[in-house]
Amino acid sequence: MTLKELKIFLELSETQNILEISKKLSITQSAISQSIKSLENKLKEPLFDRIGKKLVLNERGREFKKMTINPYNQLINIQYQFLKEKIAGTIYVATSKTLGTYILPQIIFDYLSKNRNILIKKDIQNSTKIIENIKNGKIDLGLIENEVDDKDIIKVKIKEDELIIVSAQKQKELFIDELKNKKWLLREEGSGTREIFLNHIKGVFDIDIFMEYNEFEEAKTILINNPDTITCVSKEVVKKELKEKKLYEIKIKNLIFKRNMYLIYHKNKTKSELFEDFINFIFDSLKIK
């Protein structure tokens, strides 16, 4: 049964005058009769007695009215609230590690502070998985640190990220191959940070990776406690440690490590007011025009 059928039934249960209901609901008398007939067919029994030209509720019709009037009113109220509150609902977001750990959390916190009817479910995944989940509709929005060229994906540049070489030991500006004998810590295979760094030094020297890590905090602890270790990370990751002089940036001659960060979504994604509002909030937070 439909809300429309219930509405006509409840109106007719109060007023047997089909012409009056026709004018009130702006539908034909024939449409009213068809709606009641459709409802009765679905319930497999009549709800009205046909007395002359009048439709009068019978005993089963009175019972059906008693059972449906409160749920119907609740559904109408839900519909009203849903239409009224456009900025409400749940957003599924997946981000790569740097964005998801150091940039997006504050943005989400600020957004939720202004919008209490919203739930944002965030997961940290690698870029390949995020793109896959965007394409199969499992998430609404992705934020990645890798390039993507896919006809089904809309991408918007949100930030330029600088990768830097850091160590607990302060050093002068060097050529990259002068760091060849350091104990290099690098992210695990598949990491965007690792790929960008290795591509930049390709042909300069073959790096001997002393240790791989998955979590930034793990690498920071090793770097701080072992001055002969070194790594390449996003500047966003070590802002605090650089300020506190626990770690130092090593300037590299003739090399700059940069990458773009993107917001991505499926080209066929329905842009609800909530979706648009959250995206615009991200842009405003990152000062994107």
Rank of each mutant, 00 (worst) to 15 (best):
L3Y: 12
L6R: 00
I8P: 03
E14Q: 09
E14F: 02
I21G: 06
L25N: 07
I27C: 07
I27T: 09
T28V: 09
T28Q: 06
K42N: 13
L43I: 15
K44C: 14
E45G: 14
L47D: 15
F48C: 11
D49R: 10
D49H: 13
K53I: 10
L57A: 14
L57I: 15
G61H: 05
R62V: 10
Y72D: 13
Y72V: 14
Q74L: 15
Q74Y: 12
L75T: 11
Y80F: 15
Q81V: 13
Q81W: 13
E85V: 15
A88N: 11
A94C: 14
T95M: 03
S96I: 02
K97V: 11
T101N: 09
L104I: 15
P105W: 05
I107Q: 01
Y111Q: 06
Y111E: 04
Y111P: 06
L112D: 03
L112F: 03
L112K: 08
N115V: 08
N117H: 12
K121P: 02
K121M: 08
D123I: 15
I124V: 12
I124Q: 00
S127W: 02
I130R: 04
N133D: 08
I134N: 10
I134S: 08
K135Q: 12
N136M: 10
L141G: 14
D149V: 10
K151G: 04
D152G: 04
I153C: 11
K157M: 12
E162I: 06
I165Y: 03
S167Q: 02
Q169L: 12
L174T: 07
L174N: 07
L174K: 08
F175C: 04
W184D: 06
L186H: 00
R187P: 10
E188H: 08
G190M: 00
G192M: 01
T193F: 02
R194F: 02
F197N: 00
I201E: 06
K202N: 13
I207G: 12
I209E: 07
Y213A: 00
Y213P: 01
A219F: 08
L223R: 04
P227R: 07
T229L: 13
T231H: 03
T231D: 07
V233A: 02
S234F: 00
V238Q: 01
K239V: 03
K240A: 11
E241H: 06
L242G: 05
K245V: 02
K246V: 00
K246H: 01
I250W: 01
I252F: 01
N254F: 05
L255Q: 06
I256Y: 09
I256R: 11
F257Y: 12
F257S: 09
I264M: 05
Y265F: 13
K269F: 13
T270Y: 14
E273M: 15
E273A: 13
F278S: 04
F281E: 13
F281L: 13
K287F: 04
